[in-house]
Computed example of a mutant assay.
Amino acid sequence: MSYVGETLSNLLHQTAFFNLSVGNYVMIAVACVFLFLAIKKGFEPLLLVPIAFGMLLVNIYPDIIVSPEHSSNGVGGLLYYFYTLDEWSILPSLIFLGVGAMTDFGPLIANPISFLLGAYFLAILLGFNDKAAAAVSIIGGADGPTSIFLAGKLGQTGLMGPIAVAAYSYMALVPIIQPPIMKLFTTKKERAIKMQNLRPVSKLERILFPVVVTIVVCTLLPTTAPLVGMLMLGNLFRESGVVRQLQETASNALMYIVVILLGTSVGASTSAESFLNMSTIKIVILGLIAFMVGTAAGVLFGKLLCFFTKGKINPLIGSAGVSAVPMAARVSQKVGAEEDPTNFLLMHAMGPNVAGVIGTAVAAGCFMAIFGI
C-alpha cells in the first residue's frame, strides 16, 4: 500500500496545481478572456486564438518555451524554437510576404507616421531606455510583425512578448477604440462626404509599384529590406499574373502556417514572471496612447486634405492609416455608413490603410538607422 500511496502522491505532485503561482492563474484568466473575444466577439480570431492559446500553454507548462541551456534534457521546449524564429525576424518577414500577396495597393494614397515619434519621447519620460522606447512606440502603428521585428533588431527581446501582445490586441480592438476618436474629431457633415470613384490603375502601374518602392525605400533605408522587400515581393507575385501558384501559397498556406507559429510563440512569451510587472503595464498604456494618437493624427490629416480639396476627401479615411489591414478600413466604412448608408468609403480607406503598413516599416527602419543597426 505504501508503494501505491507513494506513486499516487508523486503523480499528484507532478500536476500543474502544485507548481502554478497566483500570477499564472491570472494569465490563464487573461488567455480565456482573449479566447472569448476572438471566438465569441470575432475580434481578429486568426491572431488572438493562437496568441491566447500560447499564453494558456506557457502558464500551465512553463517549460514549453524553455531554452536548451535551462532544460533538463538539453533540448528545449517546442515553442522555444518558434520564438527563436521571431527573434531572428524570420516569421515577421514571412508575414509581410503573405500580406503583400493578399493586398491590392491600387487605392494607395498616403499615410502620416509622425505620431510614432511622439510616443517615443513619452516612453523615454516613463523610464525606458532609448532602444526600448523605440520598440514600444512602434505599437502605435498597430502592426504586430513590425513591432516584433523592431524589438528583435534593437535587442529588446525581453520586451518582445508584452510589445507583441499589446500590438496585436490593439489591432483586434480597432472596432472599439477608433470610432469614438473618429467621431470626436469630425463633424456629421464631414463624415457624410461622398468621395469620387477611384481612377482605374493600369497593370503596368501595379507591376512597377512594388519594384519602385523596393528600390527607393530599401536604398534609402536598407534595414527595411526584410519587411518592405518581402511585402513588395508578395505584391509582385499578385500583380505580375505569371506566378499564380506562388501568390496563392504565400497568401494562403504559408501565411496561415506562419500565423500559427508566430501567434503561439508570442503568446508563450507571456509567462506570469515576464508579463505581470510594471514595465508591461507601461507598455500596454503607451501602446494604447500611441494607437489613439495615431488614429487622431490620421483623422486630422484627413481634415487637412478635406480643406485643401474643398470637401472632396472624407476625413474618416485618415483613421485607416494604421497598419491593421483591412480592419481599420472597414471601420472607416462602418462609421461613414452610419451617417449615410449609401456612402462607400472602403476602397478609399484601403489606400491609407496599406500605406500604413509601408509607413510603419519605414518608421522602424528610421529607428534602426538612428541607432546604427
Rank of each mutant, 00 (worst) to 15 (best):
A361C: 11
E205T: 15
P68N: 01
D104M: 12
L246K: 00
L261Y: 00
K312H: 03
L208R: 11
T186Y: 12
E338I: 14
N235K: 03
A369T: 06
L304W: 09
G318R: 05
L246F: 09
P179M: 11
L316Q: 03
P107W: 12
G54Q: 06
S67F: 08
K282M: 02
E87W: 03
F17T: 04
I60H: 00
V266E: 01
A166C: 14
I139R: 08
P62K: 10
V242C: 14
N24C: 03
C366I: 15
F105Q: 14
V259S: 00
F18N: 05
P112G: 07
V30L: 05
F43Y: 13
G152Q: 05
V211Q: 00
L159P: 04
A167S: 10
I28T: 00
A31D: 04
A297L: 10
F36N: 08
G152F: 05
L159T: 08
N197W: 13
F307I: 10
A132L: 04
A151K: 14
R238I: 11
C366V: 14
I64A: 01
E248L: 10
A363H: 02
V30T: 07
M368S: 00
V331T: 08
V136L: 12
G302R: 08
I51W: 13
C218S: 13
F115A: 04
K282A: 02
V22W: 10
L286N: 09
V99D: 04
G311F: 15
G144A: 11
M195W: 01
I181E: 06
M195T: 01
E248N: 13
T7N: 11
I138G: 04
L78D: 08
T7G: 10
S323K: 03
I257Q: 03
K40S: 06
F105M: 15
L231H: 12
N10H: 12
G365H: 06
G356D: 07
K188A: 15
F36G: 06
I181M: 05
E239M: 09
E239D: 07
G140S: 05
R191T: 03
D340S: 13
G336Y: 06
M350T: 03
M230C: 13
G359E: 06
E338W: 13
S274C: 01
G351W: 09
Q333E: 15
A110R: 13
A364P: 03
A363G: 11
N24P: 00
P162R: 11
A225C: 02
A296C: 09
M195P: 04
K189R: 15
V354P: 05
V4R: 13
G106R: 03
I285A: 14
L305F: 13
V357N: 01
F82I: 05
K188Q: 15
F17D: 09
G118D: 10
L208K: 10
L198F: 08
T146K: 02
M102A: 15
W88Y: 14
A52Q: 00
G351Q: 07
F121L: 14
E44I: 01
Y83L: 00
V331A: 07
I124T: 04
P45T: 09
T146G: 00
G127P: 08
L236V: 07
I281P: 02
L204D: 00
A123Q: 12
L246W: 03
S319I: 03
G311A: 11
N10S: 06
I317Q: 06
R244H: 09
F34H: 11
L150P: 05
A268I: 07
L108P: 04
F237I: 10
L122G: 14
P175I: 10
L11V: 13
L345P: 09
